[in-house]
Simulated assay, not measured.
Amino acid sequence: MRSFPHLPDVRDSQAPDDLLTGHLWLLELIDGTGLRFRMDESGLLRFGDPETTYADPETVPIALRPAVRHVRDRFDREALRDAVDDPEGVIFFGVATHYQGTDYDWDRLPPFLGTDVWIASQAGSQAASGTGSFRPPDAAAAIFEGVGLDSVNAVEREVNARDFDPEAYAIPDSAWRDGPAAGVVVRNKRQGRGKLLAAGTATDAGETVPEVDVPDDIEAIVSEYATDDRFERVVDDLDRRNAGATVDAVADRVVEAIARETPVRFGEGSKGTAPDRVRAAIIERARVALDRR
Rank of each mutant, 00 (worst) to 15 (best):
R69V: 05
A127P: 06
L45T: 03
D85R: 05
N242P: 07
L7T: 03
R265N: 02
S42Q: 11
E51A: 15
V247D: 04
R36E: 06
Y99C: 05
R285P: 00
P87F: 07
R241H: 15
D173P: 02
T21D: 12
I30Q: 07
E224I: 03
A154H: 15
L45R: 10
R260Q: 14
F144G: 02
R287G: 07
A181N: 11
E284W: 00
D138I: 04
E261C: 08
R177E: 03
A67G: 04
V209Q: 09
V278H: 00
T227C: 00
A154V: 07
T102G: 14
I221N: 06
L24W: 15
A15L: 09
V235G: 06
A249G: 02
D17T: 15
I218E: 02
G89L: 00
D31N: 14
V250C: 02
E88K: 09
S125W: 06
P136G: 14
G132N: 00
D204R: 08
E41Y: 09
V247E: 15
R38T: 12
D31A: 15
P110G: 07
P166L: 08
R38W: 13
K271T: 14
V185I: 09
G192T: 13
N242M: 15
Q100I: 00
R69A: 09
D163R: 12
T97Q: 11
F93R: 07
E78T: 12
P57F: 04
F4E: 09
T203E: 04
P137D: 04
T33Y: 07
F4H: 05
R240V: 03
D276N: 06
A83C: 09
D291W: 05
A120W: 04
S121R: 13
D86H: 04
F47Y: 07
D82H: 13
P166F: 07
D17Y: 14
M39T: 08
A220W: 03
E261R: 02
A226E: 02
D9N: 14
L19N: 09
T262W: 10
T97M: 12
L238Y: 03
A281C: 01
D229A: 12
G32W: 01
D56A: 08
I218Q: 05
P275D: 04
G192L: 12
Q126K: 10
R285M: 07
R38G: 06
D116S: 05
T208V: 15
K195C: 05
D236W: 05
D9G: 10
A274R: 07
D236G: 08
I282S: 01
Q191T: 10
V84P: 00
D116V: 01
G124F: 01
D12C: 11
M1T: 05
T131K: 12
D237Q: 13
P57G: 10
I282M: 03
V90L: 11
T273N: 01
E58F: 09
G32T: 04
F93S: 01
A120V: 11
R292S: 01
G43P: 02
I171Y: 07
A199L: 14
F47E: 03
T273M: 06
D165A: 13
E224C: 13
E156F: 12
I30N: 00
E224G: 00
L196K: 12
R135E: 04
E284C: 00
R293Y: 02
P50A: 10
M1Q: 04
V184P: 15
R81M: 08
S42E: 05
I143Q: 14
D252F: 03
R287H: 01
P210C: 05
P263R: 02
H70F: 12
V247H: 10
